[in-house]
Simulated scan of single mutants.
Amino acid sequence: MLTGNQYQQIRSWIYRNARPLDMARWNYHFEGGTADDVIRILESFQNKDGGFGHALEADCWNPNSSPLQTWWAIQFLKEIGLRDSSHPMIKSIMKYLASGDGMAKGRWQFSVPSNNDYPRAPWWSYSEADENPGYNPSAALAGFMIKNGEKGSDEFKIGFDIAGEAVEIFLNRNESTEMHELRCFIELYEYLVELDMNSVVDIEAFRKRLIDQVNCTIEKDISKWAAEYCCKPSHLFRKPDSIFFKGNEKLMEEELRFITDSLSDEGSWAVTWEWGDYEREFAVSRRWWQANIGIQNLVLLRDFGRLKY
């Protein structure tokens, strides 16, 4: 259980270091702030084409729109419970995703060429390999398009076609799925279940395959969690009612304990990766990530009944 004193340490750290977006998220979760406050600040990261950039994902300082930065915006909208398909921000995101910008071979790209013009982590550098994209973030974005597009519309068809292809490939591939791509398949599954699309894909087979992949992907060697960027349970599920919680109860218990034990004296958590280049910019991004990690950790502890404040 995180104590009240520890909560106050984290709160003070957030107040000193968080950028306005994360401050609004903090207020939304813990201090009576509104979803509109988050949306108002999130708008400053959105471009005229409807996509998002401007280091919304803190490891890439490209101001131009990209599918991955836009995926991050969708995560924040989900976090604050915005589900209205007619909302102007959702409609503009749909317009961007349907435009074909940031797509190659019928999928949204993980990285875009203009990333190379700005400070970034090495994994955000664009190369020719990005012209043959996988399903990070395409699987999740396809689900978003189906959820928010009118049946028969171009947006709905784009999402529907990508989703169908994604599920078929996922069910028939022999190799394991990388954890970020797996998270996108989980999001697609959740959209399809919400929309009751059992007749479109084999939801039961999809569910069983996802459970198998989640169980294989979570890093079970707890000693690696502090030193490496690896897949902890919360990377793939964050609620006790998740279909992935059963069988992983002890690992989630270990993660909740790990979160409490690894809190620094100043009220923050360490970032377990580095860029290698752009040291000055990464020093800024590190703080942004710490704020995000702090909010995510407290929400996780709260949802599992481990937070007093």
Score class of each variant (00 low, 15 high):
A227Q: 10
E266Y: 03
K151R: 12
D277A: 07
S111K: 07
N47E: 13
R280A: 03
S85W: 01
S125K: 14
N116E: 10
A139I: 11
Q46D: 09
R286G: 08
P137W: 12
S264D: 05
Y28T: 12
F282Y: 15
K48A: 14
I218H: 06
F45A: 06
F144N: 03
A98H: 01
R306C: 11
E255V: 13
Y278M: 10
G32R: 01
D202W: 05
K105N: 09
N5E: 14
Q69D: 10
N136W: 04
L210V: 06
K91S: 08
L42D: 15
P137D: 00
T34A: 04
K105G: 02
N27F: 00
Q296N: 13
R280W: 00
I203M: 11
E254P: 02
D22I: 07
S223D: 04
C230A: 09
R16F: 04
K95R: 11
D154E: 12
L56E: 14
P20L: 11
I218T: 10
I243H: 05
S127E: 03
M252P: 09
E155V: 15
A121R: 01
N215P: 08
L188V: 04
W71G: 14
M197R: 02
G164V: 04
S85Q: 03
I146W: 00
L42M: 15
N198M: 01
A142P: 05
K147V: 13
K220L: 06
L82K: 01
F160I: 04
E249H: 00
G164R: 03
K250H: 05
F237V: 05
M94R: 01
E204Y: 03
S199P: 01
I186W: 02
D303M: 09
R257T: 14
A163N: 03
A104D: 11
A121W: 02
A18Y: 12
D37W: 02
D101E: 14
L263F: 04
S44R: 06
W13T: 05
S111G: 07
L251E: 06
E266T: 09
V284D: 08
I162L: 02
Q75A: 06
M94W: 01
I218L: 13
S268A: 09
E255S: 11
W273N: 09
H29P: 10
E31T: 12
A227P: 02
E253L: 01
E281V: 07
Y191G: 15
L298Y: 10
L301S: 12
F304N: 03
L82P: 08
A142R: 06
F30C: 08
L171E: 05
R306G: 09
A58N: 07
F282S: 11
S264Q: 03
A18D: 12
N64C: 03
D154L: 12
S138T: 15
S264A: 04
I41S: 02
K157N: 07
L56R: 03
W72N: 08
F45I: 08
F304V: 08
K308V: 14
P113T: 02
N248A: 04
S153W: 11
N17R: 05
M179V: 14
E31M: 02
L42C: 15
L300V: 11
D265Y: 03
Y7T: 10
E155F: 14
E168I: 01
E281T: 09
D37G: 15
S92K: 12
S111N: 13
E57Q: 13
M103E: 13
I243W: 02
G4C: 06
Y126K: 00
D221C: 05
F52R: 02
